[in-house]
């Protein structure tokens, strides 16, 4: 690629080159020359950094999109951190079992779910009482079209209880729970509905309860959506209402 703007003076051409390098527009020899120059030309390097800082503001203005929990686990596994958890972040409680269930089958799924469904209930209900008293509660009642499936979701503070009242997933399928926030770019998976009874979870930090939130259940392959977004039909959806 040749430069067809001979009218640019030397300094201007340098300024433009720094911007193009920061934007990733350079290719081939020009890219290599700019890279080399970063190492030896402090003025050029500083100008590239200035562009990177300025332009990063555009990225910061993007709506955040939560990645599926399995991405976090995959990073941990690829770094060989899978024995010691990356952190003890409370948000981890929700994703852990969903991520681990994704690659298990048959009885292993049932076992993993049993552990996952019940362990958050043992660990989390009491540890945020302070917030619970300050924050309003919300409830959503999910009912399928044929009335066969009924699920209640109730939020108190940052704890959510999901209870299966009636119905079940189809044979060999799972029902996945989705949090739909108009301010988030995509629905966020909250994991799989237990085959019986209820589950309790701490909401991840990014999720803010409110009356504009809806919750949905989608019909998914055993173990949950393989893509991190709903792949099957929505069998029930409901808004949260303030208690």
């Amino acid at each position: 690629m040749t430069i067809d703007d001979g009218s640019l003076t030397g300094p201007e051409a340098d300024h433009a080159l720094a911007a193009e390098f920061a934007l990733g527009l350079l290719e081939g020899d020009e890219l290599q020359i700019a890279r080399d120059r970063m190492a030896v030309d402090a003025v050029f390097a500083a100008e590239v950094r200035m562009w990177q800082e300025r332009l990063a503001e555009l990225a910061l203005a993007l709506t955040p999109v939560m990645a599926p929990a399995r991405a976090r686990h995959a990073v941990r596994e690829r770094l060989g951190h899978s024995v010691a958890p990356l952190s003890v972040d409370p948000a981890d409680r929700v994703p852990v079992w969903r991520g681990s269930a994704g690659w298990l089958t048959g009885l292993a799924v049932a076992a993993a779910l049993a552990v996952a469904v019940f362990s958050p209930a043992l660990r989390s209900p009491q540890d945020r009482d302070g917030q619970q008293t300050e924050t309003a509660g919300y409830r959503a009642r999910l009912v399928s079209d044929d009335n066969a499936l009924r699920v209640d979701a109730q939020i108190s503070g940052r704890e959510m209880q999901v209870t299966l009242q009636a119905g079940a997933a189809a044979q060999g399928r799972d029902l996945e729970i989705w949090w739909i926030d108009p301010d988030l770019a995509a629905p966020v998976s909250l994991g799989l509905l237990p085959a019986a009874g209820g589950m309790r979870m701490s909401l991840p930090g990014e999720l803010e309860p409110g009356a504009d939130i809806r919750i949905a259940l989608s019909d998914e392959p055993a173990g949950g959506s393989p893509t991190g977004q709903a792949t099957g039909p929505i069998v029930a959806i409901a808004p949260f209402t303030s208690l």
Binding site: A59, L60, L62, T63, P64, V65, M66, A67, A71, R72, V75, H81, A84, P85, L86, S87, V88, D89, A91, A185, G205, E206
Partner: peptide, 22 residues
């Protein structure tokens, strides 16, 4: 420090995911 790495992931991954998706 793996805990620091986990905290960084939690604080920044949704934003970086948005960049990748964009």
């Amino acid at each position: 420090d793996r805990a620091a790495f986990g905290a960084l992931y939690d604080a920044t991954s949704a934003k970086l995911h948005a960049v990748c998706l964009s």
